[in-house]
Every structure is written in C-alpha cells, then in structure tokens.
C-alpha cells in the first residue's frame, strides 16, 4: 500500500480507478457485441442525477440510490436502443453522442423547464452550478464488490448461449441472424445492460466526488470511457479494467513531470496504441511486439510485405 501511495496512487485514486474500470466494462459490453455505441456518458449522467436526488432529497441509502439510478437508465435505454441500434459503426457512434449531448443539455435546463411547466420554482439539478455537498459515502469495498460481481456475471454470460450469440453478432451480424439468433433482442438487451452499468458508475462516483454538474458528462467523458476499453483491449473483460486502471493512475504517477506531464501522457498513449493495437490485454499483440523487437517479422507481415512490393 505504501509503495502504491509513494507513486501517487492514494485511496481516492484507487477508488476512481475502480469506477473507471466499471465504466470501461459498460462500453466493453456493447463493443464486444459489435456495437460502437457512445451513449455511456449520457447514462452515467442519468444514474448520477437520479442517485443523488434519491440520497439527498429522499434520504435513501446508497444501495437504494444505486438501484434507482440503474432502473432509470434501463428505462431510458429501451426507447433509445430500439431505433438507434439499427445503425452501425460510426453512424451509431454519432447518434449515441447526440443522445448524450441532449441528456446533458436537458439536465442543464431542467430547472427552468420544470419551473415553466409546473408554474412554481423548481430547484433540482441546479443547472450549470451542479449539485454540491453530496456526502462521500461510497466505500472502497463496495466498489470492489460491485466490480467483482459484475465480472462474475460477465464470465457467466460469456459462457452462456446469450454470450455466444453476442460474439456471433460481433463476427458477422447477418450470419448470426441466419443462424436463428434474435439479433434485435440480443443487441437491445446488451445495450440496456451497458446503460445500467454506466449509470451505476455514475451513482457511485457522485458519492465519491461530492459534487456533480452537467459538464462532467459531455463529449470528453465519452472519449475517456472509450479510451479505457480500447487501450486495455476488448477481447476479454480484463482489458477495459486494465485500461481504466492505467488511464486513471498514469496522470497521477506522472505528476513529477510537471509541465511535461501532458506530453509524456500523450506519447505513452500513442506508443501503446501504435505498437499494441489490440490493447494492453491481448497476448497476440505482445507476441508480435516481441518478434518485432527481436527483428523477426510474423508470417502475416511477411505476406503483407510481399504483396506490397509486388
């Protein structure tokens, strides 16, 4: 523990590493099923605001707020997922970014909107000022437990019929459909799971950082969440966890670099992605890197070189 602290990983850093690992898993679920969805920040916002309103305005305990936030996000995910998941790749990505931005703007203007509809002054989300003074009640063991349970469910899922269907859709959606897999059902269910996971991270994080505002859930946050999964790798559930850990801890470990921190951070990110395009948790990537270092091109690369010169 002392060793970790000496390199900048204090308890709060570790707690946010766990939160970000959960966020990484939430986007991993959709990516694993071949869906490039970026709605996670929007669902995280829904979870955070619903959760905080439940603990602050209704004095509910954290676990109840957690369930409340998850249910709210799950309910919103249904009407969003049905039309949007017909889209693919970058189109899906942009549509879901659009969803996230609309959520952010609605939260920003919620009080004005609610006041003009109800005719009396509503102060719930407090606009850009955000909600402050939220007690810090999330504990490390709760985060750990939540992560372990999530991973357990994921592992069980991967081994189930449902999990194999997810992988099949990622491989080839049309082939999966011909094989009798209900693609629409699987995709929407995964999307809802992903939303619920993002929302839970939102609730847990809000009760760590003591304050939330709409700006926390914008485009930057989505890009961060995506980076957790891609840097870690999306071939197994371990990837996004490692990605979330590394990307949260790295800037703290690099604090000693002072004004060069951003540059060092950017270089590391670039080098990892360029040399390990499958992510940190991808054994083939490391093997290929090892061969490169020793100067032996892989079979595939040799073939590629031949094709190019020809």
């Amino acid at each position: 523990m002392d060793l970790l602290r000496s390199i900048g990983i204090t308890e709060i850093v570790f707690q946010l590493m766990l939160v970000n690992a959960i966020l990484g898993l939430s986007i991993y679920l959709t990516l694993y099923t071949g869906m490039f969805s970026l709605a996670n920040a929007g669902f995280m916002a829904i979870g955070a605001y619903v959760g905080v309103v439940l603990t602050q305005n209704y004095d509910l305990p954290l676990w109840a707020a957690l369930i409340g936030g998850m249910i709210a996000a799950g309910i919103v995910a249904v009407p969003i997922g049905l039309p949007v998941l017909r889209l693919r790749d970058i189109y899906l990505a942009i549509a879901t970014i659009g969803f996230g931005e609309v959520v952010r703007i609605l939260i920003l203007n919620f009080d004005t909107l609610a006041s003009s509809i109800s005719g009396e002054s509503v102060q719930l989300t407090r606009g850009a000022l955000g909600i402050t003074g939220i007690p810090k009640i999330t504990e490390t063991w709760q985060l750990l437990l939540f992560l372990v349970v999530t991973v357990y469910i994921l592992v069980r899922l991967h081994r189930s019929r449902f999990g194999r269907a997810m992988a099949a859709i990622r491989q080839d959606e049309q082939a999966a459909a011909t094989m009798g897999i209900n693609v629409v059902y699987i995709k929407n269910t995964v999307f809802i799971f992903s939303a619920i996971l993002a929302a839970s991270a939102g609730v847990l994080k809000a009760h760590l950082t003591r304050t939330i505002s709409p700006g926390d859930y914008g485009f930057d946050q989505v890009v961060n969440i995506l980076a957790f999964a891609v840097l870690g790798g999306t071939s197994t559930w371990l990837g996004p966890i490692v990605g979330g850990f590394v990307l949260t801890a790295l800037p703290e470990i690099l604090r000693e670099f002072k004004q060069y921190r951003g540059i060092v951070n950017g270089v590391i990110l670039l080098v990892v992605i360029v040399y390990l395009p499958g992510g940190l948790v991808n054994i083939n990537g490391w093997k290929r890197l090892w061969r490169r270092i020793r100067g032996q091109p892989s079979v595939i690369e040799r073939i590629q070189q031949n094709t190019r010169s020809g």
């Binding site: 670039l270 992605i273 360029v274 395009p277």
Partner: peptide, 14 residues
C-alpha cells in the same frame, strides 16, 4: 479503425 481513432486522440493531446 477504432484503434486509429484513439491513436488520433493521443496525437491531439500531444
């Protein structure tokens, strides 16, 4: 292509 997207983010930070 998603790796290229993230790679471009690293380049932007730099």
């Amino acid at each position: 292509r998603i790796s290229q997207l993230i790679s471009s983010i690293g380049a932007a930070i730099l």
